[in-house]
């Protein structure tokens, strides 16, 4: 399945967060979305899952649909104070099969415990999520992605505030997903992680600054241009002029 951005513009209260982005995410590859703060990275992911509506342009799924996506939200979007068990949280990944009303059978539960074992949390099944560390919680969310078993995996800042050992383990999981032929797209902040694990990079600063093989994208020149673009936008162009002309 290919994901194609077609002249995509998304605004947050009329301020363009993603501006006329076009391009194609390589199928079966790991692509990092990299860029300065406020570059529209999370906005782009949320638009891809349909949670935000584009002002202009569209996201196309070639040979698949929204149903093939597993999405990992930023940790801050999740209310971790609820005393829900680890098993229950991972089992929410079964939603497409169970819906709001369907039962969870033994085979599905076995899948859940297998996923927990894969992320190294075998003994944690009946713990509640309010008692987990950041790293442990992120492992739980990755277990949920394993349960979802999707062809396309979207990760929004998966390693923020996560300890080094967990980050390493989860990055190995990303590598495995790629080997299984899944497409992985992740918003990342760490240069080294991108270089080591993601063959493709989309450098975003509201606009697409560069998109392609990581080594050719993450050049000093491109990075400087990305920083400049975000700064300029902040200063001068609060409203999307191009979109207005087009409309």
């Amino acid at each position: 399945m290919k994901i194609i951005l077609d002249n995509l513009t998304v605004s947050y209260r009329r301020h363009p967060a993603v501006h006329h982005a076009s391009g194609t995410f390589a199928e079966g590859e790991a692509t990092a979305i990299f860029g300065p703060n406020g570059a529209g990275k999370s906005t782009l992911l949320k638009t891809m899952i349909g949670a935000l509506r584009p002002d202009e342009g569209a996201v196309h799924f070639d040979g698949g649909s929204l149903a093939d996506i597993a999405y990992l939200p930023q940790q801050s979007e999740i209310d971790r104070s609820l005393p829900v068990t680890v098993t229950d949280l991972v089992a929410t990944g079964l939603w497409r099969r169970t819906g709001a009303f369907g039962g969870v059978d033994a085979a599905s539960l076995a899948k859940v415990s297998e996923a927990l074992a894969t992320v190294g949390l075998s003994g944690f099944a009946s713990r509640t999520i309010d008692a987990l560390s950041n790293g442990q919680f992120q492992r739980v969310l990755f277990a949920r992605i394993l349960v979802q078993d999707a062809r396309l995996i979207l990760l929004d800042e998966p390693f923020n505030a996560v300890d080094a050992k967990t980050t390493f383990d989860l990055l190995e999981l990303v590598r495995r997903w790629k080997e299984e032929g899944r497409t992985v797209i992740a918003v990342l902040h760490d240069y080294e992680q991108v270089r080591a694990y993601f063959a493709q990079t989309l450098l975003l600063a509201r606009e697409v600054v560069a998109w392609g093989a990581t080594a050719s994208v993450l050049t000093d020149d491109n990075l400087r241009r990305a920083l400049d673009k975000v700064a300029v936008w902040h200063a001068h162009a609060p409203v999307c002029e191009t979109a207005k002309e087009g409309a």
């Binding site: 349909g50 999405y71 939200p73 979007e77 999740i78 209310d79 949280l89 939603w95």
Partner: peptide, 12 residues
Amino acid sequence: CLDPVFLFSMRG
């Protein structure tokens, strides 16, 4: 209430 964006991503 646990994870609204995720529920949205699952067409919930």
